[in-house]
Design a protein around this nucleic acid. Structure first.
Lengths: 154, 154
DNA sequence: CGATAGTTTCAGTGTCGACCGAAAGGGATC
DNA sequence: GATCCCTTTCGGTCGACACTGAAACTATCG
């Protein structure tokens, strides 16, 4: 007897959350992301998320605030409805990735400063130079690559 | 009155360590990396690192083990010398970056599995598709970019 | 205005990991 | 083999942070 689609989806959500937990995103935040990516309908209230993800209202609130803040989730309020609706903002994933790239490229300013401190001492700066060259190349290429990213469909 | 080069270097090491602390590398590990990148001579024993970075022998040992393990530092033992010598393995920085790229690209298998679970439900898979497309593109382009990386000098 | 339904805040709890320092372990020299 | 020196292991402490649940807050509707 095969397991249902919803069961497999919740297992998938858990894997999804586990991956981002390794990147420092709280488990519940990752679950929210995964859930909002596949739920039907697309919008959920905090209370619904709390129930379906079996997480306390406090955790949901904290993590929604964080996710809205980084743009991955958007909050919509409607007159006549006191409950706000949350949904995935899939467009924001590009910014999410870009921040990762920026973090990598930013090391170059660090190695660059180091090189400057060692200027006039080529012997000693050899090790740093290798690293600086790599990051220098990355901080050229990553933005260039990023320019070529495909436009999000419609 | 200007501060000495060594003073500025230790400030630089601290900045360096702080950056990688944000990426999840323990502070002391980051200090070791920064220090080994600029110290003269290039090799240090654990005891020396402990003294110069003002960290306990235990912390130094733990972090060296970790850094050697990921390849960023190499350990050399010599007959007639009981103290092992540690030095930066600047070549390994490329692997270090590559692991980051791999981590990004690996999300694609995740989103791909999700898409499969939602197959036959185009309406519902729209959100995931956007994300999947982005990661699909990345997992094509990042390895391609990586191929073009400059060779380390000599 | 009162009642209701939802969200946010906050204090408290538990877990995890970095760090320390002392004790144990292992080579090297005599 | 005994001694010395250095490294690793290990128990313990501390601080950070995710999470909870109850209380405070806010908004809507009767």
């Amino acid at each position: 007897m095969s397991v249902g689609r919803e069961t497999r989806l919740s297992a998938w959500i858990e894997r999804f959350a586990a991956h981002f937990a390794e990147e420092g995103i709280p488990l519940i935040g990752g679950r929210i992301l995964g859930y909002l990516l596949v739920c039907q309908p697309v919008e959920r209230t905090a209370a619904e998320l709390s129930q379906e993800l079996e997480a306390s209202s406090g955790s949901i609130s904290t993590n929604l605030k964080y996710l809205v803040n980084v743009g991955l989730v958007s909050k919509r309020t409607r007159r006549g409805r006191q409950a706000a609706e949350y949904r995935i903002n899939e467009k924001a994933w590009t910014d999410f990735i870009q921040r990762k790239f920026d973090a990598i490229a930013s090391v170059q300013t660090l190695t660059d400063d180091g090189m400057r401190l060692l200027s006039g001492d080529p012997e000693r700066s050899m090790r740093l130079r290798t690293v600086d060259n790599l990051y220098g190349w990355l901080s050229e290429e990553l933005p260039a690559l990023w320019e070529r990213r495909p436009a999000a469909p419609k």
